[in-house]
Amino acid sequence: MGKVIVITSGKGGVGKTTSTANIGTALALIGKTVAIIDADVGLRNLDVVMGLESRVVFTSMDVIDKRCELEKALVKDRRVEDLMLLAASQRNRKDDIKPEQMKDICERLKEEYEYVLVDSPAGIEQGFHNAAAGADEAIIITTPDVSAIRDADRIIGLLQNQGIDGINLILNRLSPTLVRKGNMISKNDVLDILNIDLLGIVPEDTGVIASTNRGVPLVHNEGSPGADAYMRIARRITGQNIPIPEMREDNFFSQIINWFSRKN
């Protein structure tokens, strides 16, 4: 029996879809069986980020309306074994799906797969409730800015009301240089307010945009700071105890030091 994890944030644009694609791919690279569900009905783009857009034939709406079997609607990833995507319908609206129907899909998928990741839409309306309906655990994505943290706090409250206990945090797009200069909220300040367990920190990485546009999740680009962070996060999800490294500043000297230490 697998585990259903909803990936959500409240605020839009903080990296839910990117994180879902990368964590899903990373888990599959470790050797786990993974299904990822795009719950952003009407504004689907997980398939685009995964580079599977052209292969989507059936969507979760087709499964719900019994136009096809669940197994048939799953799209196999191009690069990794045991990674499946259930795309969202682009023609429908979020209200067209009910939480029970979503829960049913999650229940069926977690019998077959070790991890079922649900990419939640932004907001706290029906779409969010659908995404969270079948979740056993939740991952909150936030960026270190006040509006994202405020929304994350709201979402945590809603998830707790729903009885979801394992709520973990990913702090996305942290820039150590800006934190040092006092222009960015630090990790400790975020944790002080949200008061949940930190699953990982993903540093600001310009490679994300390129990888999104190419439809290749960042984790395939081994060695980039973002990819390493997502790999560590995936390992932590599987229960490995991997400490969260202190973020290094990406200045000239640290790059030289990195370069030398890598040679050894």
Partner: peptide
């Protein structure tokens, strides 16, 4: 016995309130 998060309200119109936790912005 919990943190009051954004969007949550604790209302006690029959007496005082003690909170074992924080009251976050928006709470």
């Amino acid at each position: 016995r919990q943190t009051i998060r954004s969007g949550q309200t604790t209302r006690c119109l029959s007496g005082s309130v003690i909170i074992y936790g924080d009251v976050n912005p928006g709470g």
